[in-house]
Amino acid sequence: MNVKIFCIAEVVILFTALGVAVLRGLTGPVFFPVRFFAVVYADFFRGIPTILLIYMLGFGIPALQLSGVPTSELFWGTVALILVYTAYVSEVYRAGIESVHPSQNAAARSLGLSHGQSLRYVVIPQAVRRVIPPLLNDFIGLQKDTALVGVLGVVEAFRQTQINQADTFNFTPGIVAAVLFLLITVPLTRFTDWLIARDRRRRQATGVLA
């Protein structure tokens, strides 16, 4: 079961994360909302503890009893994993994309390739080759965290025995915990990004060459 979750999640994440990374790299004021969405997404899902999100989605969504929505805990647990790891992996991709020297993009654009074509044929192929080691690292983490989805079943069994528990799922404690975590992790990631950006500006200021 875990292996199946892992395989499905991995394939989905490889694509969604690349999408988020590409959105975040779009330049120009027109794309501000998309870029903003990508930043918020990455901050949010890197900020929440995985177990918390799995717990909230895995129990929460089925408990809402929405029509036309799968009620399986495993399904929602897997979705939670995908959401979280997409955020991590998109950051890995982003680092890879930024590590490709701007002159490569300039060379591609000078041939008349569009921004998208330059990304697709020149920048992303080089970026992906460079990030394979950290990518594997993240997938080791994913592999381990699939076990958390398995825990849902156990916890569920445990919950059934608690008579004093209301029969609807209570989101509040989970949301409070999530907010607390975000209060700490989001400023921290912003600070890290700022440090990286400052470092890059300094290096560019010293080494401007066509």
Partner: peptide
């Protein structure tokens, strides 16, 4: 840009493509 060729000091060939692929990409 398709009508203007530019060649840079630092070559800027695409390192992940063979010579012929570099040339045929554009």
């Amino acid at each position: 840009r398709r009508g203007i060729g530019i060649v840079f000091q630092s070559f800027n060939l695409f390192p992940h493509m063979s010579v012929v692929r570099n040339i045929t990409l554009g």
